[in-house]
Each structure stands twice: as structure tokens, then as C-alpha cells.
């Protein structure tokens, strides 16, 4: 084996780095344009739509939103309420359901697990019409609980939790807790949950982001302006009243994605690891 073969071809290596840097620019560039343009006036944006130098019209762009339906703070609070509520429901109840599947031997267990696998891939949108009419009948449209409570049912999170629990929860530990007189529900909360923390964090991040980004179901259920979540708010930016306010549109977009950037760049290590973990479930 020649030395060159072992270390790879330097020309190939240079090409790889060029392609990767180009792709990185492609990922970042649209967001850079968005953030910079949110500080520029509509006139400046119309003169030169691409600039790498921020301007001084951030506050002017903010003023455009006053008294108009696009209300980023409302949207932020509503999205936060829904996302936190749904995440707590998904994480807690999926862990509990996984615990039922792992810690106990019961007759219907295998059938129940097969059932979870079966329903895992069906997206919620296909039954949205029935869900909408049902919520309308019981006066739950325009109620954020209609977006939070269904998160108790999260089959793919249960699947993930079960796989993690099988590998990391020693059943002897549960037995010794029983000998010490711990009640079953108490054992789950005090012994199983702490061990599941890494898996709960992973599922929590993904549930939060997915709920935050969800558009279809919220957009059919929420018609009142003061309940609209961020993705519905952002769709208002396409309305006619903002048509000529380019700076404000960029600013509005920036405000809707800023919380996600914050979450992503503080937790990226765990997010990437979580994605990789999800892939090996096959």
C-alpha cells in the first residue's frame, strides 16, 4: 500500500472541502439575507436586495406591525403554550407507556406493541376533517387544549422510549425497589424516569420543534387572531397590507425563526445525536 493510498488523494480532499463549504453557505445564506434585510428599509431592499451590511431601520420595520394582525409576541406566547404543553404530555405519557411495555409482562403486551408500530406512520392530517368536526361539535376549536391533549398519544415516541428502556433500565432495580416497599407508580416516577432522562430530552426537543412548526391542524382549528400560533402568524405576512413593506416582511420572518435558532444552536449536539439514534431503529 503506497502512502498516497492510505492518506487519500489530496485533490479529492480539496474537492470535498469545497463542496462542503458551498453546501454550508447554501444552508446559511438565505437566513443571512433575511436577518440583514430585517434591519434595512424597504427603499434600501428595493435598491439592492442582497447586502451583507446591516442598516439602521430595525425599529422602523417594527413600527409597521403596530395595529396590524401580525403580532409576533402573541404568536410567540401561543406557540410556546402549545409546544410546552404538548411536549410535557408526549414525554411523560410516552415514557409511562414504554414502562408498561418493558417493566411488566401482560397478555396483550406484544399485540399492543405491534399495534403501536402499525399506527406510527399514519400522519394526523389524513383524519383532520373528522377531528375538526369533532372539535367543532364540542366547542374546542379556538381552544389551545385541542392542540395539547392529543400529544398524549405519540406512538413513535413510545417506540423510541421502549427501545431506549430495554437497553438501559435494569429490571433488578425495580425488584429491589419493590422489596423496599416502593409502590409501582412511585417506582416509575422516582427510579425509571431519572434513568430515562437522556431519551426524554431527545424526544422533548423533537416534540417541541415539531409542535412549534405545525401549520395544518392549528390553521384549521384556530380562527381567532389572539390564539394564532407562529406559523399561522407568519402566513399573514403574505397578506396585501405587507406587500410593499419588504423590510417588515424580513423582520417578521426573522422573529418567527429566532426562537428556533436559539434552541438549535444551544442544543445542536443533542439534536444531531438524536437524529442519528432515530435512524438506527430499523
Amino acid at each position: 500500500m503506497t502512502l498516497e493510498k492510505r492518506n487519500g488523494n489530496p485533490v479529492v480532499k480539496v474537492i470535498i472541502y469545497i463542496v462542503c463549504i458551498a453546501l454550508a453557505v447554501m444552508s446559511i445564506f438565505p437566513f443571512v439575507v433575511m436577518v440583514i434585510n430585517s434591519t434595512r428599509s424597504t427603499y434600501e431592499v428595493q435598491q439592492h436586495a442582497v447586502s451583507l451590511i446591516p442598516s439602521s431601520h430595525l425599529m422602523d420595520n417594527f413600527k409597521v406591525f403596530e395595529g396590524k394582525p401580525f403580532n409576533p409576541w402573541r404568536g410567540f406566547l401561543n406557540s410556546l403554550t402549545v409546544a410546552v404543553g404538548a411536549t410535557v404530555c408526549t414525554v411523560y405519557f410516552s415514557t409511562l407507556t414504554a414502562y408498561a411495555l418493558v417493566a411488566y409482562t401482560w397478555k396483550a403486551r406484544d399485540a399492543f406493541f405491534t399495534f403501536i408500530l402499525c399506527v406510527m406512520m399514519i400522519p394526523a392530517q389524513v383524519t383532520a376533517i373528522g377531528f375538526y368536526q369533532f372539535m367543532y361539535r364540542i366547542h374546542m376549536t379556538n381552544n389551545l387544549l385541542a392542540l395539547i391533549l392529543p400529544a398524549i398519544y405519540a406512538p413513535s415516541a413510545v417506540f423510541f422510549m421502549r427501545q431506549f428502556m430495554l437497553a438501559s433500565l435494569p429490571l433488578e432495580l425495580l425488584d429491589s425497589a419493590r422489596i423496599d416497599g416502593s409502590k409501582e407508580f412511585h417506582t416509575f416516577n422516582r427510579i425509571a424516569m431519572p434513568i430515562m432522562k437522556p431519551a426524554m430530552a431527545t424526544q422533548g426537543i423533537f416534540c417541541f420543534v415539531n409542535t412549534w412548526n405545525n401549520l395544518f391542524i392549528p390553521s384549521i382549528l384556530l380562527t381567532r387572531d389572539e390564539l394564532k400560533t407562529m406559523p399561522i402568524m407568519v402566513s399573514l405576512l403574505k397578506g396585501d397590507i405587507y406587500k410593499t413593506e419588504y423590510g417588515a416582511i424580513y423582520l417578521g420572518l426573522t422573529l418567527t425563526v429566532l426562537p428556533l435558532f436559539f434552541v438549535y444552536f444551544t442544543l445542536s449536539k443533542y439534536i444531531i445525536a438524536g437524529v442519528a439514534l432515530g435512524g438506527v431503529k430499523g
Binding site: L23, A24, S27, I28, P30, F31, M34, V209, W212, N213, L215, M230, P231, I232, V234, S235, L237, K238, I249, L253, T256, V257, L260, F261, V263, Y264, S268, I271, I272, V275
Partner: peptide, 17 residues
């Protein structure tokens, strides 16, 4: 981290952008 980043950004916002 950079290649995955667009995936977590709200699709609605990305489309309008």
C-alpha cells in the same frame, strides 16, 4: 450541524422567505 439546520426551521417561514 449546518447541513441539518434548515430542517428544524418552520417550513411556513422558510417557504415565505
Amino acid at each position: 450541524v449546518v447541513f441539518y439546520m434548515p430542517n428544524i426551521i418552520t417550513a411556513a417561514s422558510v417557504a415565505i422567505l
